[in-house]
Write a protein that binds this DNA or RNA. Sequence first.
RNA 1: CCGCUCUUAGCUCAGCCUGGUAGAGCAGCCGACUGUAGAUCGGCUUGCCCCCCGUUCAAAUCGGGGAGAGCGGACCA
Length: 332
Amino acid sequence: MDAYERITRNASEVVTEEEVRTLAEQPDEKRAYVGYEPSGVLHIGHMLTATKLIDLQEAGLDVTVLLADVHAYLNDKGTFEEIRETAERMKAQFLAYGLDEEQTEFVLGSTFQFDREYVLDLHALELNTTLSRAERAMAEIQSGESVKVSQAVYPLMQALDIVYLGVDLAVGGMEQRKVHMLARDVLPAIDEAPPTCLHTPLIADLATGVGKMSSSEGVTISMEDSRADIEEKVNAAYCPPTRDPEPDDQGRERENPVLQIFEYHVFPRFETVVVERPEEYGGDLTYDGYESLAADLESGDLHPADAKGALASYLDGLVAPGREKLREFEGR
RNA sequence: CCGCUCUUAGCUCAGCCUGGUAGAGCAGCCGACUGUAGAUCGGCUUGCCCCCCGUUCAAAUCGGGGAGAGCGGACCA
């Protein structure tokens, strides 16, 4: 797999393809970043972009993980003291998850976002952005039902972070695309280049296959989960024997979250996947790629219950090191 | 600052006028059926009715005070 392929695999979109191709020519000199609002426990949403960061590191890029304490504050997530405490835990879990320590730089937002120069640039961006545009960019990210002024500033800071972190590639889930498009539009106003962006897919809600999995509602899988928790959650997941389920009775599109997790979480991290299966149903199966597994599920050669069993055990393998880290933090 | 509206189950809301300690839909949970889940069928749970004071035998409901949220405060309508 060449660098370009490695960088873009499993991405929902890349903006623009041409810019990424250029970047892929000298990956060793490039830097990608993702910003996360610190939270005490890594969940499967964090893990999705983290998996992409691991891809990027394997392709040769360096990675900056922004622990966005100021953003979390602006989004009403607590006091600075509380937020910074969770940032440390988050960093440890990312490393446990498999980010390369040598190739990863963790930066706390507050270490540069209060600099005079940064703030002046921020105000310049504010001057170039309408409130409705900023609000639109935040729609998928904000917490609470009424929009605060702080939340309008939020996406502009994301744009500026890309500049101040010296980043060549901004990575995020698809929910970040409006923010990134805003950044591309507005950064030229302060004579900065529009950032190249890479967006990961959103995984559907585990229980229903509708919409996207969210840590705030519905079921999610996190580093807090025991193996038994994971088995229980995966077993309860929506999983028809197809990768393209029918819309539900309200006409909402559905995905197969079990297949999605195989595709976006498991196969990027494991060369082969072994599905253990009782002799009664045909014995073990071995897959060396997502396509063959999905095809077998569709044909009926692989029963969803067996797929779920395998998924739970591989997910547990991904979560276990982070779970250990969390336990260490508890011990302190 | 002024005015109007709202606050009842996890969510959306009904009940308030005509006081008698509460309901619907959705969600959730359990069971049946499928070797998963979903769908279907059967069953079940849940409430400081925003807070305080008062009237009353009795207050979600009436009166007073307070808190929180939403909307409005040129013109037009």
